[in-house]
Design a protein around this nucleic acid. Sequence first.
DNA 1: TTGTATGCGTTATCAA
DNA 2: TTGATAACGCATACAA
Lengths: 343, 343
Amino acid sequence: MPSENHRPTQEDVAREAGVSRAVVSYVINNRSGGKVRISERTRRRVLEVVQRLGYQPNVNARSLRTRRSQLIAVMVPDLTNPFYPLMIRGIQAAVEGSDYHIVVYDSDDSAAHERAFVDMMLRRHVDGVVLVSFHLDVEDVRRLTQAGIQTVGIGGRLRAAGIDTVATRERPAAREIVRYLISRGHRRIAHLAGPQDTPPGQLRIQGYHEALEEAGLRYEEALVRYGTFKPAGVAQLIDSMFAASAPEQRPTAVFAANDLMAIEAIRALGRLGMRVPEDVAVCGFDNIPAAELVTPSLTTIGQDCQRMGRLAGETLLERLGAGARAEPRHVSVPYLLIVRESA
Amino acid sequence: MPSENHRPTQEDVAREAGVSRAVVSYVINNRSGGKVRISERTRRRVLEVVQRLGYQPNVNARSLRTRRSQLIAVMVPDLTNPFYPLMIRGIQAAVEGSDYHIVVYDSDDSAAHERAFVDMMLRRHVDGVVLVSFHLDVEDVRRLTQAGIQTVGIGGRLRAAGIDTVATRERPAAREIVRYLISRGHRRIAHLAGPQDTPPGQLRIQGYHEALEEAGLRYEEALVRYGTFKPAGVAQLIDSMFAASAPEQRPTAVFAANDLMAIEAIRALGRLGMRVPEDVAVCGFDNIPAAELVTPSLTTIGQDCQRMGRLAGETLLERLGAGARAEPRHVSVPYLLIVRESA
DNA sequence: TTGTATGCGTTATCAA
DNA sequence: TTGATAACGCATACAA
């Protein structure tokens, strides 16, 4: 059984210091200003007892009373995708120095988990939320905002929910990288798409589509395969794309919907005896740290996820602070075509 | 200003359903069993109102009352090191299905942050903690355990604190990989060490030391450089090791204290015009996902971090459940020498 | 089967 | 300057 030793409360501190509970509260919250004055002597005595007893305020009780939890929750779809830890770093950097604390929640890209997350945030009475969501809808977000929880979305998906968003313009970015492939002479360009029920998956395939159209190339279903944004399963998709079709029908370039898939594609191609970029060019999306480590290093679209995180954090803090209820703001973070060896 | 709309409480539900607050509480917590019986009709009416109002229990109030928060906190030193997200996945897997929720805290490998984390856990009254700590001491841990917070350490460092631990036996592992280098004929083996105020840093250099000794090789200060477990700065260390010394004095192999450093070392060596593994063999430690993606792929020690996480989570749940206060248990997870191309 | 009353640790109001 | 005291939302022993 947990020893569950009695933890000191303000009551204990007050008794020990020979003052009332209120005084302890004042001292701890530095309320000795406007209406209330605490003598320096009293203040020091209280702090000394706090120290000696190892008193720590109970934030549950506090936030019950104050209706603020000083908590910011961050939901991401996949912590093992290096993209998101970097984003979290950005948020942390923004929040550092404020009174807010961050808790991270990994939804494992599951709709059920995402919805459970909303409930949890409601129950925990967090003050603010940063959402990287693929499954929540406007109604889910309304539940948060209606409860007075400030919400910022990363990715444009939730713009319709009337919240602030920070996003990369993924469609133009996808278009640009496919354009680049075309400019290198590729005509049969395959797309290793992401899940089509997620906006990143949709936007990237749309960009792919647009670039082809611009160049007067035909969009062929046979050149598109649908994956999960994760390495698992990519090998089969590549196999089905290359092993099954006649050599002259094969794509000369593959645009993968993210780096994780692109890297796995390069490996799969290698196993099929194809060289990258000589036989097939490959490019990805995101620019995760591994992108420059692999061989051949990966041509990709750089999203500045750390900056996106920082912007999201800053936006949230603004809302939480002054809280001037202005129009929702949608900021888009520049992307960058990063040409390396793979294409 | 946050619209801060009134959120429904049990009071509201009770009024709406025409019952007392207690009944609502009973229904919500499924207390209709032993001493208390709630009619099915009442139950349904209450649940209907809960649904309609979108009532969510306030966990702060609840845990104030029950003295349980159903919260497990996980502290890791660096979320951007892929090692830790995997570990977290393991913990999540263990906790999935229980009533506990996980919050993740990234200490950025700072002693101050780690200590702040302890305070935070105390204040938030979390029920359990999984600690991957490089800086906390026995006294810090005692503050947690004395407050009745169940604590599990990952890594052997906190064994002395009398808590359960899950660890890889890093010293033998380091010894083994250096032995392997020796078995491949290397005699001048350099070590790109981790910070010496952290146990992983210490244990890995000790293993290195032991392997040399075993083989009758001299330990030379000139062959050791101290880094931070991060890529930054590694290039200079490699430069100083290779550029500065006469060719015949140069190491023929480098054992890096972790994969992140090893990968950066390979890149730095490449810039110096040295080939890996022909001119210099390189090996790492951890087996992060990128280890098999880089070229040459990385020879390293595989730590099963996901399993470590799962074990830590399971251990914690056991303690939280029955809470049978047995002796602290120390389990060590097998490691694996993974030979790839780099050495 | 349901309702009343109490206290969890805080903060905030109001007197003293 | 300080001290009672009333909420905050909930769970539960006990009474009805």
